[in-house]
Amino acid sequence: MTITTEAFTVQPFTRSCHQIWDEGDHVLIGVSPGNSYFSAGRITELVRWASARFSRIDIVYADLHVAELFGALGYEEDHAARRASKELKAVRRRVLRGVEEADPQGTPVRVHGLSEFAGHPVYELLHRRVQHFLATDDNVRAGCERMAAHFLSSKIGGPVAGAEQLAACLDYISAELPFFLDTPGILGVPSSVSCYHVPIPLTDLLYAKGGGLRASRNQAHAVVRPEGIAA
């Protein structure tokens, strides 16, 4: 079911995801560095929209394995490190400026880099679980490789990626996935909706019945995009 609000169209992935959305406990906004979608203005719109519906907002931007990705794409080590540092400083500035301009009227908004969760017991447990299934489950591997191929195709100008590029991209993806599995466990909230503006290839698997790599029962996912913009 699609939910249309004044600013965004929301597509909860399952009926359970819709129920968690209705509870309004918490929303996680994931931000990718180097993605022009995440301007300061967009962050402002998202925070204003979310603060009217949720009791708490967390924004997490991916700051792990970025330099390694640039290195795999052909940058020299020093250049890759400088490029990654520049992009991550820029995305943090945009996020913080967007939050400040949103003026969320008392709704707590916290901003984190993924690296802040290094050593966090729940995050580390989930990360090890992701890596285990990535190594042993063909469906998980295929889903992650589809995500990696989509990302890399825009960077290398074609669909064929080398082994080093694929490995770096899978490390980047596996660092993000714990928040798609159990944000409530990591952040200590009753339930959570993880939001992104495009569908994630692994979502079908994470919300399937049966065993394997699955989202927790109080974890929801929704595609959230501005009104009038197609998926």
Score class of each variant (00 low, 15 high):
residue 167 A to I: 09
residue 156 I to N: 07
residue 20 I to L: 14
residue 157 G to K: 03
residue 165 Q to S: 07
residue 224 V to Y: 04
residue 130 V to F: 09
residue 38 F to Y: 12
residue 144 C to V: 12
residue 220 A to P: 05
residue 84 A to L: 03
residue 51 S to M: 02
residue 158 G to A: 02
residue 186 I to M: 05
residue 155 K to Y: 08
residue 229 I to S: 14
residue 117 F to R: 05
residue 144 C to P: 00
residue 67 A to R: 01
residue 34 G to C: 06
residue 25 D to M: 02
residue 220 A to D: 09
residue 84 A to M: 03
residue 112 H to Y: 15
residue 94 R to M: 09
residue 220 A to Q: 05
residue 152 L to R: 02
residue 99 V to E: 04
residue 124 E to H: 02
residue 126 L to A: 00
residue 109 V to I: 01
residue 129 R to I: 06
residue 37 Y to Q: 09
residue 106 G to F: 03
residue 192 S to K: 05
residue 162 G to T: 07
residue 40 A to P: 01
residue 78 D to K: 12
residue 230 A to E: 14
residue 146 R to V: 12
residue 175 A to G: 04
residue 192 S to A: 14
residue 43 I to R: 03
residue 129 R to S: 12
residue 109 V to F: 00
residue 165 Q to T: 09
residue 73 L to Q: 07
residue 111 V to K: 09
residue 40 A to I: 01
residue 206 L to M: 06
residue 29 I to C: 06
residue 156 I to E: 08
residue 39 S to N: 05
residue 82 R to E: 15
residue 29 I to H: 04
residue 139 N to I: 03
residue 170 L to H: 11
residue 203 T to E: 08
residue 176 E to M: 08
residue 170 L to C: 13
residue 229 I to N: 11
residue 198 V to G: 00
residue 178 P to H: 08
residue 228 G to R: 08
residue 154 S to K: 15
residue 194 S to L: 13
residue 190 P to K: 03
residue 86 K to S: 14
residue 84 A to K: 00
residue 5 T to L: 10
residue 162 G to H: 05
residue 35 N to I: 04
residue 223 V to G: 01
residue 221 H to C: 09
residue 104 P to L: 06
residue 134 L to N: 11
residue 214 R to C: 01
residue 115 S to T: 05
residue 208 A to N: 10
residue 206 L to I: 01
residue 91 V to L: 04
residue 225 R to E: 07
residue 90 A to N: 11
residue 89 K to H: 11
residue 104 P to G: 05
residue 230 A to H: 14
residue 41 G to D: 05
residue 72 A to F: 01
residue 65 H to L: 04
residue 53 R to T: 02
residue 91 V to F: 03
residue 44 T to L: 07
residue 105 Q to H: 13
residue 76 E to Q: 13
residue 182 D to E: 10
residue 208 A to S: 15
residue 219 Q to M: 04
residue 92 R to Q: 11
residue 131 Q to D: 15
residue 125 L to V: 09
residue 226 P to K: 14
residue 182 D to M: 06
residue 81 A to Q: 12
residue 62 A to R: 10
residue 182 D to S: 11
residue 98 G to F: 00
residue 231 A to G: 10
residue 57 I to Q: 01
residue 62 A to E: 10
residue 190 P to M: 08
residue 201 P to R: 02
residue 215 A to I: 05
residue 167 A to D: 15
residue 106 G to A: 06
residue 185 G to M: 01
residue 157 G to E: 06
residue 10 V to E: 02
residue 84 A to T: 00
residue 100 E to D: 13
residue 15 R to N: 09
residue 231 A to L: 15
residue 35 N to K: 06
residue 158 G to V: 06
residue 221 H to L: 12
residue 170 L to Y: 12
residue 153 S to E: 12
residue 137 D to Q: 04
residue 152 L to G: 04
residue 166 L to Y: 08
residue 73 L to K: 02
residue 132 H to D: 13
residue 30 G to R: 10
residue 122 V to E: 12
residue 200 I to S: 02
residue 162 G to K: 03
residue 149 A to S: 12
residue 49 W to S: 12
residue 134 L to Y: 14
residue 207 Y to C: 07
residue 204 D to S: 15
residue 211 G to T: 13
residue 217 R to M: 13
residue 39 S to T: 09
residue 26 H to Q: 08
residue 39 S to H: 02
residue 138 D to L: 11
residue 78 D to E: 14
residue 149 A to M: 03
residue 187 L to D: 06
residue 209 K to F: 10
residue 231 A to W: 15
residue 42 R to E: 13
residue 134 L to M: 12
